[in-house]
Simulated assay, not measured.
Amino acid sequence: MSEKDFIPVRIAVLTVSDSRTLAEDRSGDTLVTRIEAAGHVLAARHILPDDRPRIRDQLAAWVADPDIDVVISTGGTGLTGRDVTVEAHRDVYEKEIEAFATVFTIVSMNKIGTSAVQSRATGGVAGGTYLFALPGSPGACKDAWDEILVKQLDYRHAPCNFVEIMPRLDEHLRRKP
């Protein structure tokens, strides 16, 4: 850590599930607890069914919201026919953060071995907003937050982090023609 001051970011959490309610959303609860414990702001929280257009539209709405810096979804990243969260994320991304999936797989391998190949966790950027799609288990959400996101969403983390480049994510939109 450095001498920099902590900068809280505003994070929206989306749980993708055909069956969970807010009362049963252990993965969402895991993320919310960690987000708030780290000093960040929970900007919004929703649950949606495994429906690509609805997920895409919610992600796009949050990207367009100036009060949201980061979107984290949980659920729908597997291989079954109903798992469409990754496709919805990619519908919204301007740029994919390929290394997020790689690092998540490394973290998962250390926890669940070769079963990590069944996850399609992903990360990207759109409209100056970071988006991350995590698996639907509380353990996967805990691992992604504790091993990757808590550090990359902390302005004090060295040698680099997502927060320090946030002001430049949409610089291409401000450039003169």
Rank of each mutant, 00 (worst) to 15 (best):
Q58H: 11
I112G: 08
V107E: 03
K95P: 00
G28I: 00
G124R: 01
A37I: 11
A121V: 02
V163T: 12
S19F: 07
T129L: 07
I112H: 06
A64T: 08
H157G: 05
S115E: 10
L169V: 06
Q58E: 12
V16D: 04
I112Q: 08
V84P: 01
E98F: 09
V150Q: 15
C141Q: 04
H157P: 04
L22Q: 10
E171D: 15
Q152K: 12
K142C: 08
L131I: 14
V71R: 10
M166F: 09
V70N: 06
F162T: 07
F100V: 07
T105Y: 11
E36T: 15
T85N: 11
V13Q: 06
D83H: 08
G127S: 11
E87V: 13
A60G: 06
D67S: 10
A99H: 04
D69H: 11
E94Y: 00
P159C: 09
A44N: 14
T129D: 05
D143A: 10
I47A: 03
R174M: 10
E3L: 14
F104C: 03
L149T: 00
V117E: 00
V163N: 13
L42A: 06
R52H: 04
D29E: 09
G39C: 06
G127C: 10
A144K: 00
V32T: 12
G113M: 02
I7W: 00
S108K: 03
K111V: 14
Q152D: 13
I148W: 00
A144G: 09
F162G: 10
P177H: 09
R54H: 09
G39F: 04
H40I: 04
G139M: 12
A60H: 06
V125H: 07
S2M: 12
A121D: 01
Q152V: 14
P159I: 05
E36D: 10
G81F: 05
D51I: 03
K95G: 01
A12C: 08
V84C: 06
F104K: 03
D69Q: 11
R54W: 07
N110F: 07
I47D: 06
D5S: 13
A43G: 08
V41M: 10
V41P: 08
A44Y: 11
I68K: 02
P66C: 07
V86N: 07
V103G: 00
P135M: 00
G76I: 11
H46T: 15
V150Y: 02
D5P: 02
G128L: 13
I112M: 15
D69A: 08
V86Y: 03
D65K: 04
Y155K: 15
S17D: 09
K176I: 14
G76W: 11
G136D: 10
T105L: 14
R10T: 06
R34V: 00
K111S: 12
S108L: 02
I112S: 07
I97D: 01
D170R: 15
A133K: 10
G75F: 05
M166P: 03
A88F: 04
E87N: 12
G124C: 07
G28C: 03
A144L: 05
R120F: 12
F132Q: 02
N110P: 02
F6Q: 05
L14D: 04
T105K: 12
E164A: 14
T85M: 11
R54M: 12
P53R: 01
V41K: 11
L14R: 03
F132A: 04
I148N: 00
F132G: 01
E36Q: 15
L31R: 04
D69C: 09
D67E: 15
G139E: 14
G78H: 05
P159R: 02
G113W: 05
Y155Q: 13
A99D: 06
